[in-house]
Write a protein that binds this DNA or RNA. Sequence first.
DNA 1: GATAACTACCCACTGCTACCCATAATCTAT
DNA 2: ATAGATTATGGGTAGCAGTGGGTAGTTATC
Lengths: 154, 154
Amino acid sequence: MTINNNTFTGEYSYTLDVKGRINIPAKFRNDLTDDNEKSFVITKGMDSCIWVYPIIVWQNIEDELKKLSSLSNINRSFVRNTVRYASMVKYDKQGRIAITPKLIKYANLGKEALIIGMVNKIEIWDPGLLAKTDELSQKIDSSQFDELANKIIL
Amino acid sequence: MTINNNTFTGEYSYTLDVKGRINIPAKFRNDLTDDNEKSFVITKGMDSCIWVYPIIVWQNIEDELKKLSSLSNINRSFVRNTVRYASMVKYDKQGRIAITPKLIKYANLGKEALIIGMVNKIEIWDPGLLAKTDELSQKIDSSQFDELANKIIL
DNA sequence: GATAACTACCCACTGCTACCCATAATCTAT
DNA sequence: ATAGATTATGGGTAGCAGTGGGTAGTTATC
């Protein structure tokens, strides 16, 4: 049973093997609807992590992008930095996806990796980098943080 | 008989077994509506405790989180921190849920644990930590309670 | 066209967890 | 008061999840 379809929560620790493969947590695979055909789109995240989208979620993003004018600055840079590196991956019988060397390098991944559910997508992090990023963001935006928390969390 | 659906009150003392399982009080289970399918979402609380939400309550939180665009830095770190420790748990035939080692460590749980109804969610505490937190909050200026009094009639 | 490199797919091992059963204590109804 | 039901806790186990490694078939290179 799942909370919501194609929706991911929780943090898991997994190992990246010498072939560049990493396991997608069984929970996440179960949350994935069948029309995704066991496939994700992996790409560069906006922090130093890898973003993993279910393909039908990614399709929505592409549709939205098509509607946006290229005159928009933010749109151009999002397309350039994110979409550019996107590639489709299907997980194997053991539930693993292969990560391209470019993305492994970008996310500074070693043997240990953290996989985090981010509601509509998944993030893959180097543990050290995530800790550092966390620390930074909490120092900077605590007031905006509280504002969001008051709005959303019961 | 229940007062309100998915609404929890009262304090109960339970034991965490060696497998990290803890009983959800029978009264709370009875208060849980069927559409939750015997499932909760457990996550880090704001004090050093564990928050336990009925699934349908958590779904509202997820829906709100989905509306936040990942283009914004603050949104990304907020979603990450909110969802990172959240996982769905279903209670077994005996009415127990399994608590992840990470959360046990965070809440500093030993064998004894207090389970407290917090209206729309449940809190799990180490008894010593709760006592200490209680003591601290008693010292807080009573003017803050006066402020609350303007919002809620008891 | 021969060889090297790579990738997709397959198999194997280990440890854990979800599920089951057992038992004692407590509650409930007649 | 007593029998039956429910609740709280402990423990065993089959099956699966996570990980490593092998190989055949495909693509790239010279």
